[in-house]
Design a protein around this nucleic acid. Sequence first.
DNA 1: TGCTTTCACGCAAACGTTTTCGTGTTGAAA
DNA 2: TTTCAACACGAAAACGTTTGCGTGAAAGCA
Lengths: 346, 346
Amino acid sequence: MKRKVTLKQIAKELDVSVSTVSKALRNSKEISLDTRTKVQAFAKLYNYRPNNIALSLKNKRTKTIGVIIPEIVHHFFSKVISGIEQEANNRGYNVIIGLSNESFDKEVINIEMLANGSIDGFILSVAKETLLLQDYHHFYETINQGMPIVMFDRVVNEIACDKVVVDDKLGSKKAVAKLIDSGCKNIALITTKDYVNVGKLRTQGYLEALEEHKIAPKASLIIKVGENKDKDIEIETLEKEISALFEKEKDIDGIFAVNELYAISAMKIAIQKGYKIPEELSIIAFTDGVLSKHSIPALSTISQHALEMGKKSATMLIDKLEELVEEEKYQTEVINTTLIERDTTK
Amino acid sequence: MKRKVTLKQIAKELDVSVSTVSKALRNSKEISLDTRTKVQAFAKLYNYRPNNIALSLKNKRTKTIGVIIPEIVHHFFSKVISGIEQEANNRGYNVIIGLSNESFDKEVINIEMLANGSIDGFILSVAKETLLLQDYHHFYETINQGMPIVMFDRVVNEIACDKVVVDDKLGSKKAVAKLIDSGCKNIALITTKDYVNVGKLRTQGYLEALEEHKIAPKASLIIKVGENKDKDIEIETLEKEISALFEKEKDIDGIFAVNELYAISAMKIAIQKGYKIPEELSIIAFTDGVLSKHSIPALSTISQHALEMGKKSATMLIDKLEELVEEEKYQTEVINTTLIERDTTK
DNA sequence: TGCTTTCACGCAAACGTTTTCGTGTTGAAA
DNA sequence: TTTCAACACGAAAACGTTTGCGTGAAAGCA
């Protein structure tokens, strides 16, 4: 087993100095053609590759981006990662991943682990617990140490950093307007509690759409889902609530859910109860993912263009890292949403 | 903005040497209690954290694991990553991700990028194109340089390294046996082309199960799906084939698909054609994911325990890295499969 | 006083690079 | 023959750590 070969070893072998080897490999004309070709041949033979760690230390940059997301087993987040990775790789950067599992502590630990030189900057989406606790010291500290952060989707407005968000309110309005336009009169909303800002915004969009169409909102048509660490239990509870909702509100003809899973759960109950979709009941979900695409019937959704979000986030971060953009100038990029009409809308 | 503080800066500020600071921080009794407390207080105040890169260079280990997978927007792979990340974090390791997108070139590039000091070892699942080309030089080179590799799921048998696999053949047999036991007589198989080894093994399991139950296999009941870079087109093509299959073979009463998506596609066509599931047609998919869990009706599947695969892979790699296990001793861990009965089987 | 410990700290090397600044040799111009 | 530029290369510093070893001063002992 031949271990990794270093400049020093090549130098010793060829009886020249380390600096000569380094220069020869970079084709410096300071070195004679003779020596250059000799060194290069030797390096090729032994498959020499400069040690990234040493380069990082010297250059004070790692060419690595740290990404921290709440969970990875999730279509939206994995798609964003995919986008980040594409853009990062194109620009010669690596991506290192940390998962917070929606936990404040894990988010802090991950940030601290990575912030000590391992990476050049962060792209992250804030954990729900952090949002709930409203403790953002780890973000401030990171930024203070001169490490740029780009937040996407779940952002904290009061923090001065670049952000990539979806126009949640407008997206929701689009969805609800579509439902109304297609004839729905009693549209239920399945959303999260208000401390999740995207949930809150989507709720606002729902309300505004109703208002603009002169429809009075009814509190009894709104379900705000409580968090549960165990997703299965969360969904089970939700399904009971939905079931109760259908019993109580017999004239529901439209459902808008703030994510796929809530929508699918609603659809499942609706199908059980014999609703014809979309004739008697239309459904639209925020967030487009595999579930929507492959459900039967296929769900109409608001696509957030997760891939684009990822790419855009990476672009903004790398631009800042490479100083193509002013350091203290923070931007918030809004990604458009698109209504994807499938089989649950008329 | 206060930049990251280093030992040197602390040393200068406190008018001692760098080594004194270093020792003081590690609470060496070589340093007087006075100085120790003073240094520690100062370090705390300025939030000193040792630079990971410098430590990596010095210790010749990065405490980082490189993971290369074909795609991340995929329930199985993201679940495996989740498992790897859990175990790695527990043991104080970071995880850095590379995506091959099933491409040989990207796989090679990713490995080369990471192998030059950025990480201590690899966990990977081989790209389909690599499997097709059968060019494994990048794996051999990596191993030769003393960097351990753990392959999971899509492995190359001839390479000497640790492996974590699922008993694909046995899993398939379980599934097909279940179909037969519940009364199915004409079971169709939807699988991949044979160069994908897991597909091949699952096909074998299907055939063996039939054989053991004295059922003669019929080639006309088997669909081998061709790859297409564009997944949508691949699925569209598949759906046409499935549709044709139903037309030609009227007495199909069971379907075994080697992954969720193929199964869902089949179910979609079957529902369109009016089959009652599971009464007239049973379906089982290999690979358990969100789609299966939330489809309507919910798909019965063979679970591969992706999380466990991830954890096990990480355990094996880290054990090797920390020399808790002999270097030249390679193991192949087989993860059990479980039949998860949901609503598409009787 | 002279010797030996002990204490408390600094020096320097090492990890693998890149790069600036010498420096010795050669050949040519004066 | 002297002077000087060009050439080809080496030494050393720097990035931020850790650690073995050396050392000056104080203190203890005879």
